[in-house]
Design a protein around this nucleic acid. Structure first.
Lengths: 196, 196
DNA sequence: CCTACCGATCGGTAGG
DNA sequence: CCTACCGATCGGTAGG
């Protein structure tokens, strides 16, 4: 007598990917073993391979899931009818929101992408480069319009991205001070630093 | 007939630690093998153990070397007779200079300290916490004196530290734009973001 | 989904 | 400083 099969297709894999995000964030990709992951999922290590192809596949899923979301948001921001400075603020707010809502995936994608293997590695690096270029172009536009003070735009972008993405303690921080307050603090400081 | 022994004591170990910094930065601590390191040094893996006790000892040396420099500088900054905002700027400039001059050690200490083992791990975490607390106290002082706008001080510190330390491409950046210009860009943006 | 197991690689030691 | 080697652990597969 077969069990009723209402489980969504892929839900088991999604569970594994989610546990992997948590494990990779905590211990790092290389220091996380498939046996660790299996224990977190509640099966034997060998059983994981019925749902995934390899350990690095888990990293692909995480990194490209995050990259795609950021790329799509960049498309949206670019096409908005707002000033360049407002676009920068929009991007900053999106990064903060992603950090709060998808902390583990974003963190892993940010710190562990170098362990991707090579068709994926180059692809990821290219997407990352493109994203930053587009971000820098908006910053540059803001400088032309005198909304942002003259600085080296690629450096500005690196500072902004790392200022947000680097906070390794979003959990604790968002517990101690409210998430909205944290967001306004960051935006105030980062956008404040751009103005002439 | 013995070779003349004018080599400074410890110079061989220092070479190994330096190569380890470079390797750990490039591949990460866990993904770096002692065979990789031996190859970089130009000996067999077993020979490394005549100069060091273990792989993690290399990480101790790197992390505490960096931590001690930052702690000592914090002492100096605190005792200077300047305003709180000037102290913050002083700290920012020191972080930038360390990043330019000791990029690999600082980077490794920042991203790989979690692989320290436990008497060292707790010790390092405590030093880190202390440093941030002292930094936040200066920021808070600046707020009281109305030199810095009211924000959550620990968050401000995290943003500052990550904005500077996160730049994973200091090499390339400092090649493209001059180091002094980079420093002024960063200081302008970060200190600018603090002012009311 | 599990048991059993493989080849590769790891950090490190013995002994010279 | 090297050769030789160890036990542990790794990612992954075979076969059911």
């Amino acid at each position: 007598m077969a069990r009723i099969k209402i489980e969504k297709n892929g839900s088991r894999k999604e569970l594994i990917v989610g546990k992997a995000a948590s494990l990779f964030r905590e211990k790092g990709f290389k220091a996380s073993s498939m046996r660790d992951l299996a224990e977190a999922v509640g099966v034997e290590a060998a059983s994981l391979y019925n749902h995934i192809k390899s350990k690095t596949e888990l990293l692909h899923e995480l990194c490209f899931g995050v990259a795609n979301r950021f790329m799509q948001h960049m498309d949206e921001t670019e096409s908005k009818k707002i000033t360049a400075l407002q676009k920068v603020e929009d991007l900053i707010r999106f990064h903060i929101a992603e950090m709060i809502e998808h902390y583990e995936e974003v963190y892993v994608s940010d710190r562990e992408w170098k362990y991707l293997e090579d068709p994926y590695l180059s692809n990821f690096q290219n997407q990352r480069r493109m994203y930053r270029k587009r971000f820098a172009a908006i910053v540059e536009e803001g400088m032309k319009q005198k909304q942002i003070k003259k600085m080296d735009a690629p450096t500005v972008v690196l500072i902004l991205l790392h200022a947000i993405g680097g906070i390794e303690s979003w959990h604790r921080s968002t517990q101690k001070i409210n998430a909205d307050a944290l967001t306004e603090n960051m935006v105030s400081m980062l956008v404040g630093g751009l103005k002439p």
